[in-house]
Computed example of a mutant assay.
Amino acid sequence: MNLAASPGARRARGLLLTSGLAITLAVVAIPFYWLVVGATHSSQEIFSAPPPLLPGGHLTQNLRTLQDSAQFGRVLLNSLLIATVYTVCAAVVCTLAGYGFAVYRFRGREALFGLLMLGLVVPAQVTLVPLFRLMADLTWLGTYQAVILPNLALPFGIFLMRQSMSSLPAVLLDSGRMDGCGELRLFLRVALPPMRPALAALAIFLFLYQWNDFIWPLIVLRDGASFTIPVALASLQGLDETDYGAILAGTSIAALPMAAVFLALQRQFISGLLAGAVKE
């Protein structure tokens, strides 16, 4: 008798798997729950012993403090604008570059791609000084384009799209050329539609990358009215006193767009990450 296939063994494995998933869910969800609960309490209540586990009545005051101290409504619009424009522009650049590396054969292609991949291992902090000097020479300091433009050709985004585009059958592209498609039309009408899952994964990654970016916007943005959410929340931390209730309220609000984008595109995100991973 095969014990591994018996109903009792299957139930035991199912119970073990369910228990493991429940523990993992609790580990992930509890910090988010406490984040929301902390947003409804004052700093004194947050650091009380024992800490509060149920929502309080300080949310309105925290939101008022957040708006008065950091112009949070304007900051939220800044982040949405910068992240959206960056996502669209960077997706175009990364997709075109990935298509070029995957489809075209030219001298030095592998060496150029390898050089590009070095960007994945070089710390971003290494480029901060030269990028800052470049933005200063262009008189772009304090502007949105200084935040958006330097990282459009993101190495990981190009790598992701190159791997996905590599799965396109060469016969499909050759058929399009034989039918009279120009290279741009071939890209838009033939190559791009099958890449929708990969594009969704790329869009999520780019949006979250820009939405959470802190160091570069902190360096180039000068006016509090132009700050992004991470910079604005960091500005609320004072030397003598910090309103953690307001910070937790702002963090809770900042997490909503990220969660909405991921939940809306999670299936495409998983499919896009797996695209090109297995070659037939």
Rank of each mutant, 00 (worst) to 15 (best):
T40G: 06
A249S: 11
R13W: 05
R13V: 05
S43W: 09
G114D: 06
P197F: 03
G56L: 01
Q163R: 12
Y33R: 15
L273K: 07
G119L: 06
L80Q: 05
G108T: 03
F159G: 04
F113T: 12
Q61K: 11
K279Q: 11
F269N: 02
V261H: 00
G73H: 02
V88Q: 06
A90R: 11
G56V: 03
V121K: 03
S252H: 03
R189C: 10
A170G: 13
R177G: 00
G142L: 07
N78G: 11
A90I: 11
L199M: 03
F101D: 05
R105G: 08
V103C: 06
I229Y: 00
M135V: 03
L120S: 09
L273T: 04
G57A: 15
A102S: 07
S6G: 04
I229K: 03
Q125P: 00
G245M: 01
V121M: 13
L54G: 09
V190I: 14
T18C: 11
F156S: 01
V92H: 10
L112H: 07
T84W: 01
L239R: 12
N2M: 07
T24W: 15
Y209S: 13
Q44N: 11
Y104N: 11
R105V: 10
S271C: 09
T65V: 15
F205V: 04
L152G: 09
M161V: 08
A5S: 15
R64V: 14
L248C: 12
D223W: 00
R133I: 04
D213G: 04
P150V: 11
I148N: 06
V261N: 03
G20L: 11
L53T: 15
G224E: 12
F156K: 01
P194A: 09
V27A: 15
T143R: 08
I219P: 02
A5D: 13
T60F: 15
A97L: 12
T18Q: 14
L63H: 02
R109V: 01
M195Q: 10
A22F: 00
P155M: 06
G14C: 02
M135A: 10
I270R: 11
G20E: 00
S42R: 14
A264D: 05
R133T: 01
S166A: 15
G272V: 02
S19R: 08
V122Y: 07
I247G: 01
T87Y: 09
A22N: 02
A83K: 01
A39I: 06
A254Y: 05
A255V: 13
A12E: 03
G100N: 02
E241A: 14
A153P: 07
V190W: 04
E241D: 12
D243T: 02
L53S: 15
A255S: 13
F32C: 13
I270C: 02
R10F: 07
V147W: 10
L66H: 12
V278Q: 09
L81C: 12
D213E: 14
P55T: 03
N212R: 05
